[in-house]
Design a protein around this nucleic acid. Structure first.
Lengths: 188, 188
DNA sequence: CCGAATTATTTTAAGTTTAAAATATCTCCA
DNA sequence: TGGAGATATTTTAAACTTAAAATAATTCGG
């Protein structure tokens, strides 16, 4: 998480200095820092609430949230892609959740490389309780926004997401066969 | 970082089910997930670019970004608050940056508990190069947004931030003297 | 069918991160 | 002025996270 704050940046910029590759990027930079502080603020609060109320970490909650939507289980690779974290990360997370009895893994039928991961009954029950509280917290955190604000944000964030995807795909900094070949693994 | 994706949630909700504390929070939840994926996407790209182009990690870059704006140095506590991370985290990060010769620490005049941290000349030079590239990357990532979009997002995110702060302050889950007493450490 | 390339996962090493306890210092008021 | 409480930082243990290398299994063209 990039932890900068979005205050105190100069407002005025000399239009003359807009030169290719070294120009006036203040607006975008300020936007990025504000997005970051906003997300951080909410995430910290949710993390803290999950810990104090349910003694669970945010990554574990997130993983369980993915599994809840896949009653028949998902592979570790699916989890890694959906959660946007490394495969090795998922391995460890699942391992700990299995030890806690919240998650189970079984070999994937038809592919001996893969394992299917799913919630146990205990894990599902536990998650449902937490998810309800989580939804309430998020609603509280956004209580200062009206329906119009939310709609507008949804639209603008979709646009920002699309923009970022294009930029990231368009100028891949490490060209691999995978990067060039597959365009279908991302989530939207 | 909460790693959920913002797809596949039901669009339609029964208005009758809006009950206190267990109601219709889909819009807010969807907004939160979208904010998260959007931020994640951009952050991953920046992290990756920092690593491949400059062999630096995001937390180190963030810490140096804070220091650059404080030519006279900041305390570890300042860094912790501005970066929104724990104090212990900052201790380790500074330690490693000092070892790399990018940052220096000296005792704070007038308070023997504190240390002032600042960029070395080498650190400053290094950061300036990276910061210029970073600004370009962010501009590229947001290239699909026009000035109006950016303005609108800035306003809506400010509103969201304010809302979240009120909610987090208003219903503190762990009441400490500090929580109740000071309202001035956050960044705005 | 063979083998090269791809895919799924684990392992490894290093770094990041947190919460909580421990230290050390400072403030301030009774 | 003495000491209680607050503040600044470090330490600790555990968890999270990544990138890269290593394993293992699959796919697919020839």
């Amino acid at each position: 998480m990039e932890k900068l704050v979005d205050e105190d940046l100069p407002e005025t910029v000399d239009a003359e200095t807009r030169v290719q590759g070294s120009g006036d990027h203040h607006a975008e930079l300020r936007l990025w820092l504000r997005m970051l502080t906003c997300t951080n603020l909410i995430e910290c609060e949710i993390r803290s609430l999950l810990r104090t109320r349910f003694d669970v970490t945010l990554p574990r909650f997130d993983l369980m949230a993915q599994l809840e939507r896949a009653p028949d289980g998902m592979t570790l690779g699916d989890l890694s892609r959906r959660m946007m974290v490394s495969a090795g990360n998922v391995t460890g997370l699942v391992e700990r959740l299995v030890q806690d009895g919240l998650v189970e893994r079984r070999p994937a039928p038809g592919d001996r490389r893969s394992a299917l991961v799913s919630l146990t009954d205990s894990g599902r029950a536990s998650f449902e309780t937490m998810a309800a509280a989580h939804a309430d917290w998020v609603a509280d955190l956004f209580a200062g926004l009206d329906a119009g604000d939310i709609d507008a944000l949804m639209g603008l964030l979709a646009k920002a997401k699309a923009s970022a995807r294009v930029a990231a795909e368009g100028a891949p900094h490490v060209s691999t066969q995978a990067t060039l070949a597959k365009k279908d693994t991302a989530d939207g």
